[in-house]
Amino acid sequence: MINFEEILNKKVNGVLATIGENGPQTRVFQSLWSENNKVYFCTGSQKDVFKQLVSNPKASYCVENKFSPVMSVNGDVSIIEEMEYKERAFQILPMLKNLYQEPTNPNFKVFCINIKQVKTFSYAEGPKEYSL
């Protein structure tokens, strides 16, 4: 199986898909880190993406791996309130200080996708699917 955590730990940009009132919604997002079959992100509580994740806690994240293959991870979403995760996000993305001032800001949210499925595609190998 592809080492998906190694790819996600490069703080890659990808497309995060959630489910909104009118169906699927996508937006470009950056992963923060991945470990223990989870990939972590952050956002603001006032944003539509956060409201969608609270309302329907399932998501998919697709990245174009520059080395091939294209990869998506799918699973259930958890909102993370522990301060150590928020502080880690601030360490990884120092520009968060400009947006939220500090990790204790109640509008600053960290969430993760608990990865249940990894899908890949390359022209050399075709589609592959792995369940965790």
Rank of each mutant, 00 (worst) to 15 (best):
G14N: 07
K66H: 03
T104C: 04
M83R: 07
Q52E: 02
K116V: 05
A17Y: 07
G14S: 11
V15G: 11
V110P: 08
K97L: 08
E64K: 06
S60M: 13
L93Y: 12
C62I: 06
G20M: 14
M95F: 15
P94G: 09
L96N: 12
K47T: 07
L96H: 05
I115A: 08
S72E: 07
V77E: 09
Q52F: 02
F29Y: 12
K119P: 06
S78T: 14
E87F: 01
K66P: 11
V70A: 14
E21V: 13
C42M: 05
Q91P: 05
S68Q: 07
N37R: 01
Q46A: 06
P127M: 12
V12T: 11
E125Y: 12
K116A: 14
K58A: 13
L96C: 06
N105I: 04
S60P: 13
Q46D: 03
F108Y: 13
V39Y: 02
K11P: 04
P127L: 11
Q91W: 05
T104N: 07
A17N: 09
V49C: 03
S131E: 11
I92D: 05
N107V: 07
Y100N: 01
I2Y: 14
V70Y: 12
K51F: 03
V73W: 00
Q25I: 06
M95Y: 15
P24H: 15
K66V: 11
R27S: 08
C62R: 06
S60C: 15
N65C: 15
I79P: 10
N3I: 02
K128G: 12
N36D: 09
L53M: 08
Y130F: 09
F90E: 09
Y85T: 03
L32K: 01
N9L: 11
G23D: 10
Y100R: 00
